[in-house]
Nucleic acid binder design. Structure first.
Lengths: 157, 157
DNA sequence: ACTACATAGTGAAGTCACTTCACGATATGC
DNA sequence: GCATATCGTGAAGTGACTTCACTATGTAGT
């Protein structure tokens, strides 16, 4: 006998879909990681930049909440990004304990490039599919995401 | 002005779908990580166990190829799994350089639990959806996965 | 105003996944 | 036999995390 999978056992559509989700998570995660490495940084650091691009300047605490990591970790990520000249730490106008983090012009340029890459990828993946099919696809994804969040209430917004 | 996103700009279905894929990657990745942590191990180690469960005993080199990591890394992951009594290293019958890695009974028990959890999750996510809709969903996922692999030829099988 | 407590950021120390490089032990081709 | 490729691992290093302790500051409560 070779393995437990010599018996096909016909997975059923629910399991087949979930297995595809696992596969996609793996492939897309790897692609993102490689894409960021090509641009000279890591996924975690790029995530911080993206949060700042998306929501504007904020404190490190807010950044930690937005990215779902500890404040201490944000400190380290920002140290690296600041070294690269992509973000700037300024004094918070009203709270002298806090630091206000914002994108530098170079950081804005970088995130604009990210956004462009995302739009390119979206076109490459889905441009030829009928909008109606895509809408159903996205709706099913939303359903799955919602239910996944219910399974693990620790997930962030 | 608050942020760049005050202008809704109607993303379009392709970008909306891709953004959902990103979101799903994040949520599902977090869920898997937490699930493994609850069971006392990490994602990377569980991936090794799953590969052994799926494909049977193999050398560390084959394991490295299967998981898409360096052989050196496999050594470390196996050290930990062996410590936990989940895998066993045996001498390869014909090649005295190689080590044959297999699941212990405890390891088989563990992976059986993983498989059960996966099937439960599949039911929880998708059991109430019509099979036809799930088939279309999975087909669209396959399409996306294929195209993603084309973008980054470094991706593994 | 003074004490009490919560909060913002960071140093220290540690874990885990991962890498590259070097090395000893085998296998293999000619 | 001898060159050469391959298998696993030690050594050393990076990056993303964590927890814990500590300082500096804001926010009450009386």
């Amino acid at each position: 006998m070779k393995s437990l999978h010599d018996m096909p056992e016909r997975p059923g559509p629910a399991r087949a879909s979930l297995d595809r989700l696992f596969e996609l998570t793996e492939v897309l995660g790897a692609l993102m990681q490689r894409g960021m490495a090509d641009r000279g940084l890591t996924l975690a650091r790029a995530g911080v930049l993206w949060a700042l691009f998306h929501d504007g300047p904020m404190t490190q605490r807010a950044l930690a909440a937005a990215r779902g990591v500890t404040p201490r970790n944000v400190t380290g990520l920002l140290d690296a990004l600041q070294e690269e000249g992509l973000v700037a730490r300024e004094a918070h106008p009203t709270d002298r304990r806090a630091t206000l983090v914002s994108l530098t012009p170079k950081g804005r340029e970088f995130t604009a490039g990210l956004r462009g890459g995302r739009d390119e990828l979206a076109a490459l993946l889905f441009a030829d599919l009928p909008p109606e099919r895509l809408d159903t696809f996205a709706a099913t994804l939303v359903l799955a995401i919602e239910r996944l969040k219910d399974v693990d209430p620790t997930a962030h917004a």
